[in-house]
Each structure stands twice: as structure tokens, then as C-alpha cells.
């Protein structure tokens, strides 16, 4: 537990030291949101708004995913593996990505609301859906990043791998958030939430079943 916490804090410190990377991510986020506002239809429908939200989310999450195992390359990696169990490392990465994605979600929501204030979003419902999606997404991204760090570190390859696999999650996110946007209460979309939870659990289970075989050297 202590090692996991220290790993997470190491990740945060790393981000803090390379603040320009994080800053780059967020300025990209703002830029995309603004572009969508600028070129998009000003009075757009709910489904359009929703689709744009999840597309921005999807592509930003690729950005996040492409660099989480980046700094742990080469000799440092062997050193790291002596100190930390790879499972703990993976778990810490997942938790870190989860935080990053949640912050990102809130930022996207903030800018989307800023540019399109007429769309009503119930904040806590939205947050709970986002967090539920982020659990699965963080696991998926960390796993693919782990895979990718074993291949030639190639971001395009990563997107090729993640894009189809993340589709069930993003599709469920879209349909659930669409019904929430339309004013359906969060309790009546319980079956969809349960399905997302199921996908999350399956993803986590399969990732923790598989990581020892990938991480071993």
C-alpha cells in the first residue's frame, strides 16, 4: 500500500517537474474545445454536443496514455522493477491516470459549458458517469501503454490497438450520458450503469490476469 502511494506521488511529482507537458495537454484541450465552438453549429442538438464531448475525451486520453510508461524506459526500468512489484506499479499508474482523466473530464465539461451555456448538465450525475467510465478507460490505457512500452514505443500503434478496444466503453458512455442529458434520472439508467461497471470489472480482471506475462523479462 505504501509503495503504491509513493509510486503515485512519484508520478505526480514527475508531472509537476515536467509541467510543460501537462500544460501542453491542457492547452491542447482548450484549443480543441474552442475550435469545436468556433467551427461548430452554435445551436447544436444534445446528441451532437454529447458526441463531441466523448470524442475530445477519447483523443485526449490517447495523449495521456501515450506517455505514462514513457519515463520508465531503459535502464531505469530495470532499477524500478527491483524496487517495486510490477503489479503495484501498474495499479499506481491506473490510479494516476484515473485522476488525470477525471480532471480532464471536468475541464472539458467546464469549457463546453463556457462556450455552450444553454445545455443543462446535472454536475454530480455527469461526474459519476465520467468516473465510472474512467475506471475502465484508465485500466485500458495503462494496459495498452504497458503493451506499447514492450513494442517499439510507437504512438500510432497504440491508437490502433486502443481505438477498437475502447469502443464498448465509449459507446456505453455516449448512450448513458445521452439519456442523462435528456433529463432521465440517474436511477433509471441503472441497467446501463451496471453494464459499464461489468465492463470495468472484466477489464480490470483480465488486465491483472495478464500483466505478469507482459511485465516479465
Amino acid at each position: 500500500m505504501k509503495t503504491i502511494l509513493s509510486c503515485i506521488s512519484r508520478d505526480f511529482k514527475n508531472e509537476w517537474r515536467n509541467l510543460y507537458q501537462l500544460g501542453g495537454l491542457f492547452s491542447f484541450l482548450i484549443g480543441v474545445c474552442y475550435l469545436i465552438y468556433f467551427f461548430g453549429d452554435k445551436n447544436q442538438s444534445l446528441s451532437e454536443w454529447n458526441l463531441k464531448y466523448w470524442l475530445v475525451y477519447l483523443f485526449l486520453s490517447f495523449f495521456v496514455g501515450s506517455r505514462i510508461y514513457e519515463e520508465d524506459q531503459g535502464r531505469f526500468r530495470i532499477f524500478l522493477h527491483q524496487l517495486v512489484h510490477p503489479g503495484q506499479l501498474l495499479l499506481s499508474k491506473i490510479i494516476f491516470v484515473f485522476f488525470l482523466l477525471t480532471v480532464m473530464n471536468m475541464l472539458i465539461l467546464f469549457f463546453f459549458q463556457l462556450f455552450n451555456p444553454e445545455i443543462q448538465v446535472q454536475f454530480f450525475n455527469w461526474l459519476s458517469i465520467c468516473m465510472l467510465i474512467n475506471v475502465g478507460m484508465a485500466t485500458l490505457i495503462s494496459f495498452s501503454s504497458l503493451l506499447n512500452s514492450n513494442i517499439r514505443n510507437n504512438t500510432i500503434l497504440l491508437t490502433v490497438i486502443i481505438l477498437p478496444i475502447s469502443f464498448p466503453l465509449i459507446g456505453m458512455a455516449y448512450s448513458t450520458s445521452h439519456s442523462v442529458l435528456e433529463g432521465v434520472s440517474i436511477l433509471s439508467v441503472g441497467s446501463k450503469l451496471r453494464l459499464i461497471l461489468g465492463i470495468d470489472l472484466i477489464t480490470i480482471a483480465i488486465v491483472f490476469f495478464l500483466y505478469p506475462h507482459i511485465a516479465r523479462n
Binding site: P164, F167, P168, I199, I214
Partner: peptide, 22 residues
Amino acid sequence: ARISASFNVFALVAVIPLIFVL
């Protein structure tokens, strides 16, 4: 072999909700 084997397991698990649940 190692990575593609684990990806294969992962892929089937990802495909099942795609075709049978959604």
C-alpha cells in the same frame, strides 16, 4: 509470442461485449 498471446486473450474478452451484449 508473449505479448501477442496476452493481447489475444484481451481481444476475445473485448469482442464478447461488442457482439453479444451491446
